[in-house]
Design a protein around this nucleic acid. Structure first.
Lengths: 402, 402
DNA sequence: TATACTTAGTAAAGTATATTAAGAAAGTTG
DNA sequence: CAACTTTCTTAATATACTTTACTAAGTATA
């Protein structure tokens, strides 16, 4: 365990103050002292250091409470920037975010050629980051966060296995760190999404929430007490393979009745094709080639009965799985992200209704479920949050990247 | 968040040293300094205080490493004692444990009369503790831990609802604290069991493990990074109502296919009666009145085919549910406790086999599953652990109960 | 045995950092 | 404009870790 030392005590207080400024938006030294139990002189000296580091700045004067006007402190959001990478199966999104995460300064998207090998994939990541940096030479960068699909060893920063690309054991952290000499964090995309949601939305740090990424697969990230929870071997959150119907369809993993066999994008599309083959009337009938979940959503918008029913069914299954999650983890909030979440209310309503019906306590039934508000930037901003959460964490014995 | 202060720094280091002594059994000052990164003088002064408080004591000299022999420090296990209460639906167990939790100094069991009301229940708890204290006047007690079945508000120390006794909103903490003037902690029994297992077995504090209590109901306690995790409303761990077969039997909660409908003690007994009614040959046939899971276990020991099959089936269902838990939480260890766990290998083997077969990664498949080694004292010692984990935690601004 | 070397533990001085006390700055209010 | 508030800073103080130096108690070797 981390021992208590002067250094550590100071870094802890520094982080408390920095987080206070971040979560409040703007706040005076005096107010920080009141709310954090720290004394005014302590706050003063630490604030001075943060100003010198350029992490915060003084903004205008606040309104007087009957005496001298307080000098409000705010995050110096444009003082440093972070690169976030969302490495999906078909394309890679690069973004530059400011310190608040609220402003995306620049972005870049690169397609991933099918059949790409490990070396070229890594090279593509490097050149993408190079591009962005060269386009924004005036900015100071403090780190690169990577949200990678598939199995990730986040401690080592290695992409262990990316199933859709069939790539294995890519040491992303090492490659980017040697190329750019800044902090690099790599995490599974669903986990990054979860952290991003916890970080950017739910400002209160001590929350426990779950973000579920519903796309080709179904993965979840657990944020417990404000921190990403990975489990013993880093595989916590594999909800796609949660059994909810032991007599159900066989999954790619070999088991029967995994959530993924009934609620993932491909599963919805497959079910649609089955129904069409059975002769159901629907405007989806004349699909050519592969039918996708997105096409089904579009049909639902246009009022297609089958499409709406299919989404409702998938939502109900998701609701059952989420109720299981609530019973096990009892999170304060659940966020739905990923491709299927674009179906909006078509999928959200049955989810919520199912939870209302099945959860065993009133409070559990009322667990709020939202669609991710970060939209297409969800995982990329989650990657940014990997770096941010590190900066805003007590440094302890680590050396500060700034 | 807890601010960094001198007091806090010291209490943190004190707790680090105390835990080191506990987890190592016996260790010298010099060795503590090496392993904790603290300097020898710091260790020296803090050890002095711990000796004065009576929490630790010097034992014999260790073997020389080429110089002066080290003085070994050990926990002063008999210096203080803790009262643990396991309040089950049919009886209440009171124990006195020493500081190590390894020695039960005295114990007492009281039956719970059916139809007892709130006031009498609380009075019974008080008189039980009084009895134990009066029988052991020479001991110094530092706290009372209560493992209560049913829904518990552990922050307030209130038994919100005890279904089997139909008791509501009993403020156990308040009553015991005013009667005995010591720290009182109240927690759900499955959660207490989990903490006890983590505390007494798996010495390493940073572990994440799950203890599942399989009895009349099925509940679990999650220990994450050495701490009990309760979730947003304190209902985390309600695995009994995890849906694993959406087309299964209807549960008391109103949903279909809860784990509890196939793997709890009553569920196993009910299934046995069904099979008997269908005419299956078994030595269980001539049961009179109520058939219980325990009778089925005894029949299995004697080789009864049906009994063995029923336990195997329940184990398989439990295995599926535990695999779900592994996929979500990825714990380092799973512990099975409660009445059904007494069926030993009859239930453990199918559980382990199912996990081996269904989990999606090799490491997950290898998740160790044990039957609780604390036996009948599981929940009572878990209650003791509620107090112990508090003592061994950094005190921060709290005042030390010693 | 005597000397040199190790390791364990302690005492004294030094240092980092929070806290207390006091003061300066910049307001508001009557 | 005097008196009072509130904000922030400066100077002195207190706490608890660290560094340095030393004592205690052993082992190894000549």
């Amino acid at each position: 365990m981390q021992r208590g030392s002067f250094q550590w005590m100071k870094s802890l207080n520094k982080s408390i103050i920095l987080n206070k400024i971040r979560s409040e938006g703007s706040i005076s030294r005096a107010q920080i002292a009141k709310e954090t139990q720290l004394t005014p002189p302590t706050v003063g000296t630490i604030v001075k250091e943060l100003l010198e580091q350029g992490l915060i700045k003084e903004s205008q004067l606040g309104i007087s409470q009957g005496g001298r006007k307080p000098t409000l402190l705010v995050l110096n959001t444009s003082g440093f920037h972070i690169i976030g990478i969302d490495a999906g199966p078909s394309d890679v999104q690069f973004v530059i975010s400011d310190l608040s995460g609220g402003k995306i300064v620049d972005e870049l998207e690169k397609p991933v050629e099918f059949g790409i090998d490990e070396e070229n994939f890594l090279q593509m990541l490097v050149s993408g980051v190079e591009n962005l940096i060269h386009r924004n030479t005036s900015l100071k960068f403090i780190g690169i966060g990577v949200a990678m699909h598939g199995v990730v060893d986040s401690e080592q920063g290695i992409s262990v296995f990316a199933p859709n690309l069939n790539l294995r054991n890519m040491n992303i952290k090492s490659v980017l760190e040697t190329s750019f000499e800044m902090v690099v964090k790599v995490e599974n995309d669903a986990k990054a999404l979860a952290l991003g949601e916890a970080w950017f939305q739910n400002q209160t740090a001590n929350t426990s929430m779950i973000a579920v990424n519903v796309g080709r697969g179904i993965g979840a990230g657990l944020v417990i007490n404000g921190k990403l929870y990975s489990g013993e071997h880093g595989i916590a959150g594999e909800v796609g393979h949660m059994t909810i119907d032991i007599h159900g369809k066989t999954c790619t993993c070999g088991n029967d009745g995994c959530l993924q066999t009934v609620a993932s994008g491909p599963a919805i599309a497959e079910k649609a094709m089955e129904m069409i083959d059975k002769g159901y009337q629907t405007q989806l009938t004349n699909y050519n080639g592969e039918l996708t979940a997105e096409m089904i959503y579009l049909a639902a918008v246009e009022g297609d009965r089958l499409a709406k029913d299919l989404l409702e069914e998938a939502g109900t299954y998701l609701g059952i799985a989420l109720t299981n999650l609530i019973h096990v983890c009892n999170p304060s909030t659940i966020i739905i992200g990923g491709g299927v979440s674009k179906a909006g209310d078509f999928i959200l309503k049955p989810i919520v209704n199912t939870i209302r019906k099945r959860a065993i306590s009133e409070k559990a039934q009322a667990t709020p479920v939202y669609v991710s508000s970060l939209g297409d930037y969800g995982s990329a901003l989650g990657a940014v949050a990997l770096i941010l959460s590190d900066i805003f964490e007590p440094m302890g014995d680590r050396d500060c990247p700034i």
